[in-house]
Design a protein around this nucleic acid. Structure first.
Lengths: 141, 141
DNA sequence: ACCATACTTGACTAATCGGATCAACTTTCT
DNA sequence: AGAAAGTTGATCCGATTAGTCAAGTATGGT
């Protein structure tokens, strides 16, 4: 499981937006980068992806920024990871389709499915709430 | 879950060796590459790693090759993947250790732990046996 | 003894990817 | 008008992966 910085940053940003959803003014990119130490224009690039996915809404002009466009409870970490991260773990069957090859593929698929299941059952709302509490949380395997 | 070709090839080679363990003569690299379409000298590089890990034994000279050095039932896919693949998913705590950061890290860790659990409970013996079955089936087609 | 076979070692190249940056432009608030 | 923000597209760098080469060494068969 590679936790590409891209996905990590995206999640951080979304948590920030989720926590500040009650505010009426949108949150500026600058603020998020300062808060979480995310390299400036890189976050912009990520937010662009999130926008075209429909998770966030951008407000231009002065006093502009970003705002969450969906319910945090409806957004799972899996969706975030897949939208922003690697371009789909393409499980195309190789040309050399020996039985050994198939077996190995099956195991890899099972493993990746297991980790995806964990991400699929964690919502943004959940992780944002826990962040707010500052609580130590146990995630069961 | 990235299934680096390195790990994939390593597993394929080990399956081959496991299946031919009863033979007295070691298996030549050339043969393995032909069977599974693995690029020649790349497999050598991988086998070197497997050797220094102690999983396989090399026999030099003519009639030489590789031979499994452990019981297939004692070797899990997790061990293989970690020995040959990425250099440990280094989960170093970032300098900016905000609560959000910690939360996100916890989820990633849980996810990666889930997939590792799958690999940890699959042994080489198991996957080799299943491959053998598949081979038998193919024989009749 | 000799030669073909096969592993050993170490360095080396090529392509891809993730991370990050820049510059020029548009929109909106005051 | 001017400052503050986001928008877009091009680009760059460094690390990692995949894959290669060549010179060397050991072994078995004849």
């Amino acid at each position: 499981m590679t936790i590409s910085a891209r996905v990590h940053y995206a999640t951080l940003a979304l948590i920030e937006l989720a926590l500040r959803q009650p505010e009426k003014t949108p949150v500026a990119v600058r603020e998020i980068t300062r808060r979480h130490g995310i390299p400036g224009p890189f976050l912009v690039q990520i937010l662009r992806t999130l926008r075209s996915a429909g998770w966030v809404q951008s407000v231009r002009g002065s006093q502009g920024g970003y705002r969450l466009a969906v319910e945090p409870a409806d957004l799972t970490l899996l969706e975030i990871a897949e939208a922003v991260g690697c371009p789909e773990s393409n499980c195309q069957t190789d040309a050399t389709d020996t039985p050994a090859n198939q077996m190995v593929h099956e195991v890899w698929d099972a493993a990746s499915e297991a980790s995806r299941a964990v991400l699929a059952r964690t919502t943004l709302a959940e992780i944002a709430a826990r962040t707010a509490e500052g609580d130590a949380v146990m995630f069961y395997i």
